[in-house]
Design a binder for these strands. Structure first.
Lengths: 238, 238
DNA sequence: TATTATAACTTGTATATACAAGATAGTAAA
DNA sequence: TTTACTATCTTGTATATACAAGTTATAATA
C-alpha cells in the first residue's frame, strides 16, 4: 500500500497506452480522480505531473488534462533503459555476443570518465548486439569495480542492469548522454557489419546510482542506418 | 511576487552554475532553505524537484541534496531551444541565411506531420546556419498558418520562437524529437558545405503549444562532424 | 574496545485548506 | 440578437500538519 501516487501514475499510464483514454480526449478532472482513487488532490496531482513529464498528457489550466498521442511518442530511447528491456519492447529477434570481459587497470581516458583514483580497477566488457542476423551495435562498457565487484559472461549475456538492480540491490538513477557521429575504427569494422558505411553513431553514457555515485561509462556504437533516437522535451521558461 | 517556487528554482540554479554551491557539495536542508526564503517546505520541495528533473541536483533520502557537476551537464541540446538561444550560449560567430520563405499548400507528408486538414496552408522556410564561416545546419521549418498567420524574412533571420512567444503571445510548451542518420540529398549538398561527407544527421521536431496544439514541424539537418546532442535522463522504475 | 541503542536530523508521502486564475456555460441586460 | 455579467467548473500556488523512512552522531552498554 506504499507509493500511492506512483501506483496511480502507472495505472493511468497503462490506461492511456491501452486506449482507455484515447488521444486528444481529456482525463477525468482532478476532483473526479480524487474520488475514483479515494485519495487527496495533491496525490492525484503528483501522479498527473509524472504523466506530464513523461509525455503522456498535457495539463491546461482551467480546462483539464489532454491525452497525447502515445503511439507518436512511442518507445523513447531517450530514457535509461537496458538493451534487453528495449529489445523486449520492439520484439525483434536479437542476440548478444560477449566479445570481451576482463578486469583491467584503466587507462587515463577511462579513469577520467569514471572518476577512478590510482589503483582502482574496472570491469570492461565489449558486447555486440545482433538483430535479425545483423551485427548492428557495439556496446563498450566500463564499470567501476568499487560498485560492481564481479561480472560473469552469463550476466553480460543476459542483462547487467537486471543483475545490478536485482542481485546487487543497487538503484540505477540517472545518466548523462552524449551523441556524436564519427568515422568507424578498425575495431568497429571487425566486430560489426559495416560494409559500405563511412560513419558510426556513438552514444556516450555516464550512469549514476541513487546516491549520485558514478558507476558506469558506456560507449554504444551504432550502425547509422539502424540508429534512431526518440525524445520528449519540455521547454523551460527561464 | 508570483511563482515563488520558480523564482527559488532559478536562484538556486544560478547559484549552482556560478559555483556558490560547488559540485559534490550539499545544498542546505529543506528546513534551512525554508527559513532562508521565508516560505513553506512544500514550496522549497517544488523548486528542488525542478532542480532534480533538470540535472542540477540529486536528492538522497535521509542525507540531503547533492549538487551535480553543472559543467558536465552543460548546455543540453535535448531541451526545446531555438538556434538563437543556443548560439547565444556557445557564443560563436554565427549567421542565418533565409534561403526560402513562402506560404504553401502542403503536400501529403507535411499535411500528415502537421495534422493539417484539406485547404489548410503552411508557412515554409529554409534557413542555413553558418558558424565560423561554415554552412553547417539546414533548418526546414513548416508552421501551421492557423497558429502562425504571417512570417517575414526579418523574423526568420532573428528568431521565430522569440516572435511567437513575445509578439504572438503564445507559449511553446513541448516537442517530440527524433534523430536519425541519412544520406544527404542534392538539396543538402547545394545549401551546406558537405564536401567529403556521406551522411547527415536529421533531427525531426514536432513542436506543440501550451494547449497541446501542434503548430510546427521542423527538420534540422546537421553536418555529422559538427553534430552533438547532450541529454540528461532519469531512469523510470516501473 | 566494540557493539548497541537512542536521539536528532534528513527527505518522502499523504492529507487538508484557502485562494488565485483560466475556461465555459448560462443568464440577464442592452 | 448581441453583449456583458455571473456562477461554476477546471487547474495552479501556497501553506500547514502528521507521520514514515533513511542517515548520522552520540551516548549507553557489554
Amino acid at each position: 500500500m506504499q507509493n500511492k501516487y506512483l501506483q496511480i501514475y502507472r495505472e493511468i499510464a497503462d490506461d492511456i497506452r491501452e486506449g482507455v483514454y484515447p488521444s486528444q480526449s481529456k482525463l477525468p478532472s482532478e476532483h473526479d480522480l480524487m474520488k475514483d482513487y479515494d485519495t487527496s488532490r495533491e496525490t492525484i496531482r503528483k501522479a498527473l505531473n509524472l504523466l506530464s513529464q513523461n509525455g503522456f498528457i498535457q495539463k491546461v489550466q482551467g480546462k483539464g488534462s489532454i491525452v497525447l498521442d502515445a503511439k507518436k511518442f512511442d518507445f523513447p530511447i531517450s530514457g535509461l533503459v537496458s538493451f534487453k528491456e528495449l529489445a523486449g519492447k520492439i520484439g525483434e529477434r536479437h542476440r548478444t555476443h560477449v566479445e570481451e570481459l576482463e578486469l583491467i587497470t584503466p587507462d587515463e581516458t577511462i579513469s577520467r570518465n569514471l572518476g577512478i583514483s590510482k589503483g582502482g580497477k574496472v570491469w570492461k566488457t565489449y558486447r555486440v548486439r545482433e538483430i535479425d542476423g545483423e551485427r548492428i551495435i557495439l556496446d563498450k562498457d566500463y564499470f567501476n569495480q568499487t560498485y560492481v565487484e564481479k561480472l560473469t559472461k552469463e550476466i553480460c549475456e543476459n542483462s547487467i542492469y537486471e543483475y545490478i538492480e536485482n542481485e546487487l540491490g543497487m538503484t540505477i538513477s540517472f545518466a548523462k548522454k552524449e551523441i556524436v557521429v564519427v568515422e568507424p575504427t578498425e575495431e568497429d569494422r571487425r566486430l560489426l557489419h559495416l560494409e559500405g558505411f563511412t560513419n558510426i553513431v556513438v552514444v556516450k553514457n555516464f550512469v549514476y546510482f541513487d546516491d549520485a555515485s558514478l558507476f558506469q561509462y558506456t560507449e554504444s556504437r551504432h550502425r547509422p542506418d539502424k540508429f534512431k533516437f526518440v525524445d520528449f522535451a519540455r521547454r523551460t521558461h527561464g
